[in-house]
């Protein structure tokens, strides 16, 4: 975890996979809230199955933009169309984006997509418009199992900081040096590995 200055807000999300039931409610809520077109997703739940009968289990990995502290998409955007806000959320200026797609190629998490209706790049913004109004992101509010917890990482009394202080957690592609701000509790390594279960690649 990267240490930020304590005064500033730093929004982060904890996804507690001990609670996740793989119902895709977060994906649907995100689609409805952000009017995400057909064929693209800002948040989705990867599902894997592993083992041989009778020792078998199913694992979920809700995936969204990691709102990295060192975001490669921001560093590589040639027109400053995407940047990190004071509170750590990465947003996109849809009127400035020229659609060069370099950020799509730079993102290690496959989080960005081209909107098929208006040709610009879009991604999850932690529902910035809702957070600004004092609400929680749509996926967090809709999750029936309360597996997604959203809040200020720098508030020691907040649920995010408490969970991360007490539990072992994981982030995706730690080795990329992006300092992702979506933390997973109880994530399965095979679910986090892009190559696991792909016979054509192994």
């Amino acid at each position: 975890m990267k240490k930020n200055s304590i005064e500033k807000k730093r929004y982060a999300m904890v996804i507690d996979l001990r609670r996740c039931i793989g119902c895709h409610t977060c994906s649907v809520a995100c689609k409805a809230e952000n009017r995400v077109p057909l064929g693209v997703y800002r948040s989705w739940v990867k599902i894997i199955e592993k083992g041989n009968y009778p020792n078998i289990s199913r694992h979920f990995l809700p995936t969204l933009c990691n709102q990295c502290d060192h975001p490669p998409c921001v560093i590589n955007c040639p027109v400053q169309a995407t940047w990190k806000l004071e509170n750590g959320i990465i947003i996109i200026d849809e009127h400035r984006c020229i659609g060069c797609k370099y950020c799509l190629a730079s993102c290690p998490y496959n989080a960005r997509h081209i909107n098929p209706l208006i040709p610009i790049v879009q991604k999850c913004t932690f529902c910035h418009h809702r957070v600004y109004a004092g609400l929680e992101p749509a996926c967090v509010e809709a999750c029936p199992a309360r597996a997604r917890i959203f809040g200020d990482l720098n508030n020691p009394q907040g649920e995010v900081a408490k969970l991360l202080s007490k539990h072992p957690f994981q982030v995706l592609k730690h080795e990329m040096g992006t300092y992702p701000q979506v933390y997973y509790i109880g994530a399965d390594l095979d679910a986090m590995d892009p190559f696991a279960g792909r016979k054509e690649w192994m």
């Binding site: 693209v40 989705w44 739940v45």
Partner: peptide, 14 residues
């Protein structure tokens, strides 16, 4: 150990 991906999203690279 067998691992099968049941559902995943891959965005098309344009």
């Amino acid at each position: 150990m067998d691992v099968n991906v049941i559902y995943n999203v891959e965005h098309e690279m344009h």
